[in-house]
């Protein structure tokens, strides 16, 4: 495989995107297309599986096989797609609603089951498409259209969650991080087994605006200023880290994936059954 131009992987006839001005989704889309290009993926052997929400439209702009399923179930569709055709590279595109909330159980089981998928969760801390309601990653105290008093629940740390569930590759990047996100997604795609990449993002239309950040520029600045690389975070206190996004790689180990393990066991069974 040789590196290609990221535009080969974009369905340019469908651009521009439907996303609001200042949305972080376009940057993640570009990072994905860039990672595909870096690896020179065969478009015929690549599938993007998406959920529902603003980020669920992303597969529409990718020039690969695409499966736009139901809210929260993208990982489950992807599990079938990958297991039935192991030749495919399967990337799963979810928002924090899909990945962390309605599909939270699928997320932890996909991490545990270790099917060879790369999940890219764009976390904008609210349900953007339906008007900015709170999700499983909405920080405590935030204002959303359904937490006008300030959110009283605590939020998931998705990287800690998936790493604890056994995902062999777990990373968090940010839409403010330049090429870093593309590198993390590429590493996720290269990693055999379940890979999880969270892209910390912004929702200037709803979440950011409701929480005092009136322009996309302010939203991006806020995210940049509240992001800490993992190395630096190691030397910070819990108090100092409150309200910050820690960026970096949280798990990176080898673990044979479900399909490989299953096929090996089945092949051994068939050899056993052959008359000697």
């Amino acid at each position: 495989m040789t590196a290609r131009d990221c535009r080969e992987y974009l369905a340019e006839n469908r651009l521009p995107t439907i996303w609001c001005p200042g949305c972080g989704n376009g940057l993640v889309l570009k990072a994905i297309a860039g990672a595909f290009a870096d690896l020179g993926l065969d478009r015929r052997k690549t599938a993007a599986v998406s959920g529902i929400g603003c980020w669920g439209w992303a597969d529409d702009y990718l020039a690969v096989n695409a499966f736009h399923g139901t809210h929260g179930r993208a990982l489950a569709f992807a599990t079938g797609i990958k297991l039935a055709n192991p030749e495919l590279t399967v990337v799963v595109l979810m928002g924090d609603g899909d990945g962390a909330t309605i599909g939270g159980n699928h997320l932890i089981h996909a991490a545990r089951r270790n099917v060879d998928l790369t999940a890219v969760v764009v976390n904008n801390y609210n349900y953007g498409m339906t008007g900015g309601q709170y999700s499983g990653t909405t920080p405590r105290g935030s204002i959303t259209s359904t937490s006008p008093l300030g959110h009283v629940e605590d939020s998931f740390d998705l990287c800690a969650l998936t790493a604890a569930a056994g995902a062999p590759f777990v990373a968090r990047g940010s839409v403010c991080g330049g090429e870093n996100l593309r590198v993390l997604i590429r590493r996720g795609l290269e990693h055999r087994g379940f890979s999880f990449v969270e892209a910390a993002s912004v929702c200037p239309t709803h979440f950011s605006r409701r929480n005092g950040l009136r322009t996309p520029a302010e939203a991006f600045s806020w995210l940049r200023d509240h992001s800490v690389p993992r190395e630096r975070a190691a030397g910070m206190t819990e108090e100092e880290l409150r309200g910050k996004q820690v960026l970096g790689v949280f798990a990176d180990h080898q673990s044979e994936d479900y399909g490989t393990r299953y096929r090996k066991a089945a092949a051994a069974l068939r050899r056993e059954e052959e008359p000697s």
């Binding site: 179930r73 569709f77 599990t79």
Partner: peptide, 26 residues
């Protein structure tokens, strides 16, 4: 597994239905 196929037990019926739809697309 005797015939080269695959079984997977999912976390619920939502995902079971989704997985067979995915496998069919493959």
């Amino acid at each position: 597994p005797e015939t080269g196929g695959m079984y997977v037990q999912m976390e619920d019926e939502l995902s079971s239905m989704a997985a067979i739809v995915g496998a069919s697309v493959s």
